[in-house]
Amino acid sequence: MSEQLKVPTMAEFMAEGKQPEILFWVGSAGSYDDRAKKITKAFVKILNKAKVDFAVLGTEESNTGDLAKRAGNEFLFQMQAMMNIEVLNAYDIKRIVTCDPHSYNCLKNEYPSLGGKYEVIHHTQYIKELFNNGRLAVTGDTYKGKRITFHDPCYLGRANSEYDAPRDVLKKTNANLVEMKRHKSTALCCGAGGAQMFKEPEKGDMDINILRTQDALETQPDIIATGCPYCNTMMSDGVKFNEKEESIKVLDIAELIANS
């Protein structure tokens, strides 16, 4: 990205004796995965544009443990959780935003009983808030009239009943939103959840992401919008499998808004 991103850390805030408005939880995918890093940067671009006083934990952030929990390793999950909670509480964090619905769900629902109580929001909810507060506005026509279909992440939708924020945000681009036959509470998983991202699927007729991509292709979209780094990978692979990567883009809502 040409422009320089401002990414202050909590340690820097602490050194200056200040508190940020919000902590941006980058998550493991957002920190290390090449595709997801672009989503992270797009979101930072939005935060910079809206002049949000945010911070990241940087090298003090560690995996939430969500993956381990879903794989059945409650020990590893709780160890990760308690380490992270120690850091978060030491910085007196009140509010957290993240681009990863898995981190969102885990921080919001599973950290409190271990001593980590924060207000946790998904980046689509935060972008919506920035729009509503007038801190952010869509200025260009990049996506006007484009056919966009949104794939609900399981851990934002069914897991936490948030179906509106991503759609409300997408509407701001003046795109033509089209729904897949399975959407909102009936949306089909992309196939990555429950730690499936990190293993080969069990024997079957087809891969889940291929079936889900079919759902998306039926809407004849220009863009498949996602709200989760793992969904993004799965849907991108599905589009490539169908040799449609030239005509159909798979973009996170943060990228769509950052570009519009």
Binding site: V7, S28, S31, T40, T59, E61, S62, N63
Partner: peptide, 14 residues
């Protein structure tokens, strides 16, 4: 602290 074998110290390299 990540599902891939990357160094924790590289977490902000993005």
């Amino acid at each position: 602290g990540a599902p891939w074998p990357y160094n924790q110290m590289d977490r902000l390299n993005w």
